[in-house]
Design a protein around this nucleic acid. Structure first.
Lengths: 130, 130
DNA sequence: TTGATATATGAACATATGCTCATATATCAA
DNA sequence: TTGATATATGAGCATATGTTCATATATCAA
């Protein structure tokens, strides 16, 4: 039988009325109430995923110093122009980078400084948890 | 032939003396000088990658409100206890979450507030670039 | 002890990811 | 125009990833 203190799972219903087991149904409900909209969660996780690949992160960190063209980024990161171009497109779609054209050359730079801030905090995090 | 202004690629050498083409060799060199150590880049990108999956991000965001046990997180996210446990292990290995035991139940919470800060900024970023 | 419960873990599998290669597009120089 | 150069893009492929299932471990109740 159910205890006074929440120390055991009990049957509950999820958002689609399917059976689930919960210990603190109030906490689960509260989490559901505060849950980000699905679209927002997707976009946010996509943004972090973009920084979650070493090559892309290296690109972004380099661009936080100075704008660079595709082939220089390729030379720096050690992957092909094509690979860099693919990654830049992805970063651009997420508004992480922008570009400007000068003749045949496209210069990429960060679109805003949020990303730099995020990286700075991430850096602090890993330093504190060596 | 080479121009006065940097508008064309020229042959250069990368860190391993392999041939690469660069437009602004000085920028590439500067980027190399400022490049994060490989280990650091790996750890940093792994941290962001951890937030780059919708399920994990949802977990982390929920935990920023209140500690939760495994089965409640499972009920909230809609994946199995096992999947949650796998993800929590990963987040714990990255010092993103920690846990405390109360009998059979393990309560997970955020290990520090850096992660919350990162998510807040990420949120601002996606809101500004709707 | 013994059985039940909460979580952890390893293997397996379907899907996602990042790269390369081939090719397309865009700009410049002549 | 025409050829060369810088970047973009789509397909294909090897690897990584997130989940489930089966099973292991840990704690509690009796």
């Amino acid at each position: 039988m159910q205890q006074k203190k929440n120390t055991h799972k009990v049957d509950s219903k999820d958002e689609n009325n399917c059976l689930v087991k919960t210990v603190h149904l109030n906490r689960v409900k509260k989490a559901r109430d505060n849950a980000p909209p699905k679209k927002e969660l997707e976009k946010l996780s996509n943004t972090f995923k973009a920084l979650g690949d070493p090559t892309r992160l290296k690109i972004v960190m380099a661009l936080s110093d100075e704008e660079m063209c595709v082939c220089d980024i390729a030379a720096y990161t050690g992957v092909s122009d094509s690979a860099v171009s693919h990654q830049l497109r992805r970063l651009k779609d997420l508004s992480i980078v922008k570009n400007r054209r000068a003749g045949q050359i496209l210069y990429y730079s960060l679109d805003d400084n949020h990303i730099t801030d995020i990286i700075t905090i991430g850096h602090t995090h890993i330093k504190e948890n060596k």
